[in-house]
Amino acid sequence: MEKVELGKSGLKSAPIIFGGNVFGWTLNEKESFKILDELFELGFNTIDTADVYSRWANGVPHGTSERIIGKWMKERKLRDKITLITKGGSSLQPGGPKNNTRDYLTGAVKDSLLRLQTDYIDLYFTHFDDGETPVEEALEAYQKFRENREIKHIGASNFSSERLQKALDIANEKKILAYEVFQPEYNLMVRYKFEGEIEEICTKNNLGVTPYFSLASGFLTGKYRKKEDFEGKERKMFADKFLNNRGEKILKSLDKISEKHGISQAGVALAWLMNRPGVSAPIASATKSSHLKSFTEAVKVSLSNEDMEVLNKAGETE
């Protein structure tokens, strides 16, 4: 499978990154290993996780996703074949304050290395900007880990355009480790969080872009078209807000393109992201073997300019 470059970082990734938020949440360890095995066999080598993943699951502690991934890599002896991404800086308690201080991030990185059973992390993200800590404090903390070869590259996620630009400017001024990849929420349903100022900053600075919620928490799979479809589903809290006129219009456009190419709506939604300006590789999750089919569909399909225009117009206004 042809790899893509994540901006100027030099990191190479599969064209779709697997989102590890499902590990320890909707998938137990055995089920997670099965999906990871199948994912690797298909040629997808990049996995994204975070120290907080599984924190919201009943009785499942934070860091469970990292523990599962670490155990899988060790048992399969695949660490050197995986591009590993994790994040820190978000609260370990749902709804709690973010923390980008040097001491907090130093502890977070060390804990993640232990859970992942690895000596290094390929790409480490500041998960959320706390809005208060000087941006250079996080960068200086990461610089130490870079010097120790425990972090290879760093990225920012969920930053405002002002704080992202400030972090880039200060890194340049102080000649310290700089963010090389940005991770926004971005999909056909949610476009405003990336398009515009953030996109311009990423393009100007040659930042890799790895969008999360690429399928709008499952809404863009086309499986959820009325409120009853969400009943009893974990995704209800994230995706039932998309059940509106705009959502219906977007689903109809996905139906049209998926029928034309003979692939799933999810495959089309991922392909749309892969073809958007500035995007390096979208992040998507799967809980069943059949869900991985949309990954290979997205990689293989060739969307025409007309296809892209149909999708673009459907999702224009919010």
Rank of each mutant, 00 (worst) to 15 (best):
K74V: 07
H62T: 10
P61T: 10
E31Q: 14
L116M: 05
G88H: 01
L114D: 15
L84N: 02
L92S: 09
K110G: 13
G107V: 11
S112I: 06
L27S: 00
L113P: 01
A50F: 03
T101K: 12
T64F: 02
G63C: 04
G63T: 03
Q93V: 15
N58F: 14
N100Y: 09
I82W: 01
K71Y: 00
I121Q: 05
D80Y: 10
V52Q: 08
S91D: 08
R79C: 08
K30L: 12
I35W: 01
Q117C: 04
S91C: 08
F125S: 01
L92N: 08
L84I: 12
P94K: 11
G96C: 07
P97D: 10
K34H: 13
L113Y: 05
S112K: 06
W72M: 01
T118I: 07
P94Y: 10
D111Y: 10
S54F: 04
E29T: 12
E31S: 10
L123I: 06
K77S: 13
T101P: 08
G88N: 03
H62F: 15
L92W: 11
L105G: 06
P97F: 09
E41D: 14
L36D: 01
D103G: 14
L123K: 03
V60I: 15
K87M: 05
F44P: 00
D103R: 15
L36V: 03
R67G: 12
T126H: 06
D37F: 05
G63I: 05
K71E: 14
K77Y: 10
E41M: 04
F40Q: 06
L123P: 03
T64M: 11
W56Q: 14
R76H: 06
S90R: 13
